[in-house]
């Protein structure tokens, strides 16, 4: 059996709490908020998220203050005598209209963002993603490159029931694959997504992309990654027993490097390794 809640947990907790209160997520040992991400869309969605969040916080502060004031000021034990009023049309109109205005103010940017994300025109390359129980298949449409992406072997070993291996010793426990999807940076990439068996969903938080893979239908979406790097996500629709074990890893290369990489893959060499499905 693996040990351990690590000893420094509590310290981590405090540091992170303080850090997050000071509004500096960089210092936090773990995240408490949505990632800003590395695409324009993810940044927009992050802003939207923070906007709604703060709106809710402000409303919460006002509403909760009123409630708390009641709890403090109108206590029977302090001799409060109940008033007898039971309605006020003015008040009720006010607290119907104000929320309407707030909601309209929220709906506008939300709708705008939605429309922008939906626009799949002018994409520069297309990748077809197919979900399987329990792995992903990536096909570079028109390039004759295609391969499967499985949970990395070491994670797979560790995640067995009572494996006795400590997950903390792994670098990217459950978030690593044998072959990542490789894409170029600064490129508007269209992805076509479907499934071969049950519904899956392809989710990379840093891209703010989540789309269901529906068997028999193809959904499409797009992303454009601004910064090269390795980004991780997971299947986000319950797809059976190993739903928790089909991560998504995307390696974003600068454009030239990507072109070189793609050239190296062509000719079916890649397809062969696909057979090593679990």
């Amino acid at each position: 059996m693996s040990t351990n809640l690590r000893k420094h947990d509590f310290n981590t907790f405090l540091t992170a709490l303080v850090a997050s209160l000071l509004g500096n997520p960089a210092q936090a040992a773990w995240e408490v908020n949505m990632p800003v991400g590395v695409t324009d869309a993810s940044a927009k969605i992050f802003d939207l998220h923070m906007l709604i969040f703060w709106v809710c916080v402000v409303i919460a502060v006002i509403v909760f203050s009123a409630m708390i004031y009641c709890l403090v000021a109108f206590r029977k034990s302090k001799g409060a005598v109940p008033a007898t009023f039971s309605h006020s049309t003015t008040a009720e109109i006010v607290w119907t209209v104000i929320p309407v205005l707030i909601l309209v103010a929220m709906a506008v940017p939300a709708a705008q963002t939605l429309v922008e994300i939906d626009d799949t025109r002018d994409t520069e390359m297309t990748i077809k993603i197919t979900g399987y129980q329990w792995k992903w298949q990536y096909e570079y449409v028109g390039e004759d490159v295609s391969f499967y992406s499985n949970l990395a072997a070491s994670s797979n070993e560790t995640r067995q029931l009572r494996s006795g291996i400590d997950p903390f010793q792994e670098d990217n426990y459950l978030l690593d694959v044998d072959r990542p999807l490789v894409v170029p940076a600064d490129t508007k990439i269209r992805y076509l997504i479907t499934s071969n068996d049950v519904i899956h969903a392809w989710w990379v938080p840093d891209f703010a992309v989540k789309k269901d893979a529906i068997p028999g239908f193809i959904n499409e979406g797009w992303f454009r990654v601004n910064e090269p790097g390795v980004y991780r996500g997971q299947c986000a629709e319950l797809c059976g027993k190993d739903h928790g074990f089909m991560p998504v890893v995307v390696e974003v290369l600068p454009r030239e490097e990507f072109t070189a990489w793609l050239a190296g893959q062509q000719g079916g060499a890649a397809v062969a390794s696909a057979a090593t499905a679990r």
């Binding site: 509403v63 009123a66 409630m67 009641c70 709890l71 109108f74 206590r75 029977k76 409060a80 005598v81 109940p82 008033a83 009023f85 006020s88 008040a91 009720e92 607290w95």
Partner: peptide, 12 residues
């Protein structure tokens, strides 16, 4: 809001 207004100037 109505619940809050119910408590308002009540005797809790």
């Amino acid at each position: 809001f109505n619940w809050t207004a119910t408590m308002w100037r009540g005797s809790l």
